[in-house]
Design a protein around this nucleic acid. Structure first.
Lengths: 218, 218
DNA sequence: GCAAAAGTGTTCTAGGTACACCCATGT
DNA sequence: ACATGGGTGTACCTAGAACACTTTTGC
């Protein structure tokens, strides 16, 4: 399995890039890695890599996710493919972009341990980014917003059990607008997507919040 | 610009495929072409082709659209990328799928003239299809459904002016469910997306319908 | 005048929004 | 006791759903 590989016509390279989101320190965060090699050496970028010639796109995305976070259970969804001819200075590279949602309590040491190599950035305070990654992230964020409105994907960003204020906060971080607490509760509880565990979360000098879990969809 | 092209690592090929929709003879139709060469010679398939090495994905999609229909004005949107390693028996091919919406009155002779080569198929009566094109079409249809609910893309399937019953019919063909005429009218007119032209459409032995046009979004 | 499709209004229901006070805890 | 954040209910409004008769035309 080593080159050279010869084709009659020029072929682009294919990669996957992953926007891995989580909620941490009261902000929506995305995992970025510092590029070890040119081009854009030392610049922050989305985790990603080449698609194996016999590897499905989703498999490549899972593999990258595992390599960067140590996690192999997460919500993973393809959202767009970027293929501008000059988006990579080396050669023509088409990248299939995925986003992944990680529960805040599953953050692996691997990613957090070496902030020189990988770090979780607040989506509102992004550093300079390699390639067309600002565009990719911006599209990932708007897709995430749609997801939160029209599906139950938010739960993927929370631990198995969570409180309603936590759920509301995550929603607000993504939607970028705040909602009335009573209306939020009413809506959530009437939709039947969550159920109380019966436990309480004692988290400070105030009344404890009830814990809920996402109901497995029928 | 001729081979051979040599790479250190194996590269997939990249194509675009387009699901081109229109409404015709009271049905939602998709343009298919009969494959002239192996694999799947003689079998119906989505129009599509290889992405030029210096060509953007969207440009490739426009080019294919133009080549197959003669049209170069239409609603065109990328919706998913298919990359299963075995989806093409020849080599690894990753295809970026687009859908296009054509107004019923702009159908070009090119596509209609030679039914041996290209034809408009009712989406409910599709022939046997090459590759993973059934999967691509199925995904295109569900995306189209979402579009119709959440955006004003439907207008792209209609002539510049149209009647409310026509608009309703197109919506019903895509959504696959019928709605009450009065409620449909009320909703459309209250949204302010259409405006009356003042003209009437005399189309048979019955009361003529008012013509409307889509309002350019503010 | 008859068949065929277009046009039109009201009532009911459900979901969304606005809004303010009491409750359980830690210190 | 007090500061902090969690929990709760009502009134209003808007959008969607159900529903039947009249109008205009071509033949």
């Amino acid at each position: 399995m080593s080159g050279p590989y010869v084709y009659e016509y020029p072929h682009p390279a294919a990669t996957v890039d992953i926007a891995i989101f989580t909620v941490r320190d009261d902000s929506l965060r995305i995992l970025l890695i510092r590029r070890a090699n040119p081009p854009f050496q030392g610049v922050w970028a989305l985790p990603g890599g080449f698609v194996g010639i016999d590897e499905s796109l989703k498999h490549a995305a899972w593999r990258e996710l595992r390599e960067e976070t140590g996690i192999n259970a997460a919500y993973l969804e393809q959202f767009y493919t970027f293929g501008h001819p000059k988006r990579d200075p080396r050669e023509r590279i088409i990248t299939v972009a995925y986003f992944a949602l990680l529960p805040s309590d599953k953050l692996d040491v691997e990613a957090g341990s070496d902030a020189q190599r990988a770090d979780w950035f607040n989506v509102d305070e992004l550093p300079e980014l390699a390639f067309d990654h600002p565009k990719i992230i911006s599209r990932a964020l708007s897709r995430l917003d749609e997801k939160v409105v029209h599906s139950s994907a938010v739960f993927q960003l929370l631990p198995k059990t969570f409180t309603l204020p936590e759920l509301q906060r995550v929603t607000e971080l993504i939607r970028r607008e705040s909602v009335d607490r009573r209306n939020f509760r009413k809506r959530m509880l009437s939709q039947g997507l969550i159920e109380a565990t019966g436990e309480l979360a004692r988290r400070g000098a105030h009344r404890p919040a009830k814990l809920y879990r996402a109901r497995v969809s029928a």
